[in-house]
């Protein structure tokens, strides 16, 4: 697919998947988020919601009010005008404790990467991560920006009942989990900061495009957190 073109793929009677590239890249995600912002600022009649992916945006509409052709024309118009650098997303500092049983995979990740556990934590904390997409389950924000040495494939087997708040790492991304669930990702810490905030005015801590820095915290500080 040529760099600046979009491909509109119909999804049933209620959506268009707007593909902006085949492969993920920073510039591609910039365009996804620019289109997302443009739709939020100037929704076309019948627009329902937009859902960002790594290389595309799903645009859902009400088929009683519009159709694929009208939606495509509206989106194409926004795409032509929505280029340009993205504004920096809000920066969140998220405390993480990477000690003991809160980081059960630390020793194995250190062994596989040839780093010390402190070296792993330093890489996690030194990077600026970015909320690329939400997916999988409520509040699961996929963060990109993980330093290259920590890019590991998933574990061979999933672990059950991994607690909410776990810092999970795999496939070049990380997640702070929100539910107790099985996972095949590497568990490198735990955060006392819930991503599902419980605050009705702002129920999700991050917006897509926000930036995240992890701040290592001691076990004592983790235990004392509210």
């Amino acid at each position: 697919m040529p760099a600046a073109e979009a491909v509109f793929r119909p999804v049933a009677e209620h959506g268009l998947l707007v593909d902006l590239a085949d492969r993920p890249a920073r510039a591609v995600h910039d365009r996804v988020l620019a289109l997302d912002r443009a739709l939020a600022a100037a929704p076309f009649p019948g627009f329902v919601e937009a859902v960002p992916g790594h290389v595309n945006l799903l645009v859902r509409f009400d088929p009683l009010l519009t159709d694929h052709r009208a939606a495509e024309a509206a989106i194409a118009g926004l795409l032509a005008r929505s280029a340009g650098p993205r504004p920096p997303g809000r920066l969140h500092e998220i405390g993480i404790c990477c000690e003991g049983d809160l980081a059960p995979d630390m020793a194995e990740v250190a062994r596989r990467t040839g780093l010390s556990p402190d070296g792993v934590v330093a890489l996690l904390a030194g990077a600026e991560h970015e909320v690329a997409i939400y997916g999988f389950a409520p509040g699961y924000a996929y963060l990109t920006g993980l330093p290259e040495p920590l890019h590991l494939p998933r574990k061979p087997a999933a672990l059950r009942d991994v607690p909410a708040g776990s810092l999970l790492v795999a496939a070049g991304q990380c997640i702070v989990s929100t539910l107790t669930m099985p996972t095949g990702w590497w568990i490198l810490g735990r955060s006392p900061v819930p991503i599902l905030t419980g605050n009705p005015a702002r129920p999700f801590r991050f917006d897509v495009g926000d930036r995240v820095r992890f701040r290592p915290m001691s076990r004592a500080e983790y235990e004392a957190a509210p």
């Binding site: 999804v11 492969r23 790594h54 595309n56 799903l58 997409i133 997916g135 996929y142």
Partner: peptide
């Protein structure tokens, strides 16, 4: 395939 949105009915 990079992860992307899915729908009820996909």
């Amino acid at each position: 395939m990079p992860s992307e949105a899915v729908s009820r009915g996909s």
